[in-house]
Design a protein around this nucleic acid. Structure first.
Lengths: 109, 109
DNA sequence: GCGCTGTGCAACTATCTGGTTGCCCAATCG
DNA sequence: CGATTGGGCAACCAGATAGTTGCACAGCGC
């Protein structure tokens, strides 16, 4: 059903800055400026990247006063992971098991 | 170690045509022209896509006379899958288990 | 209220990328 | 041999994209 979403997620993960942002967010919520502080790009660039990640369903935001807190969206990588599992299952034993996991827990198209 | 490779794979998977090519290749080896026949793009475009997939380590080619046969590279999605598992493990029970699978079978950085 | 900090919005630029067309080369088949 | 078929290479084009700067605006601290 959501081939677009899968593509959006993979495209989002294709950018090293965005992967770095996601890695940073694994440590907890953070603001745009806070995230930008640890990167060699401007705050605006980070803001755009977060928008892209949000559009891909990988992060969500929440206002807190004048700040905006971002956090990783639970399950956002589910569908892409399932796609990889299905395509790679035949050649990768581990992905084959992942495929079983996803098949068992419902979400199939 | 291979952050570049992870990025290359995700970027490659971000394109719907390339995902379609990989899905086609799950049915076995195929030639460029054969793959292009089922797509709305030219043979040259498919050739470029296959080169991109090859550069990402997802497919490999083999000459056979005047034809070139492409096939999926075993394990090509391993590292990106591990990355997704590590980042998403905290929010996705299934990815958490995948992370365990990859950790158990070695390749950790 | 005033200044500072955190964001948002818009315009602009340079580069990347997917796609094309055109031509050339190699191998196969009659 | 000659025609056909599968690919490679290069040039070119349009749209997407990552990045910037500049300015406006809303909360918070003093």
């Amino acid at each position: 059903m959501s081939d677009d979403r899968v593509g959006a997620v993979f495209s989002a993960l294709g950018d090293p800055t965005r992967r770095h942002l996601l890695e940073s967010l694994t440590h907890g919520r953070a603001t745009i400026s806070g995230l930008a502080a640890g990167l060699p790009v401007t705050r605006q660039a980070v803001s755009k990247h977060l928008a892209t990640l949000g559009h891909a369903g990988l992060v969500r935001s929440e206002r807190a006063g004048r700040e905006v807190l971002f956090e990783i969206t639970p399950g956002g990588m589910g569908e892409p992971a399932r796609w990889m599992a299905e395509v790679g299952a035949e050649w990768d034993e581990r992905l084959a098991r992942l495929s079983e996991l996803f098949a068992a827990e419902g979400g199939h198209e």
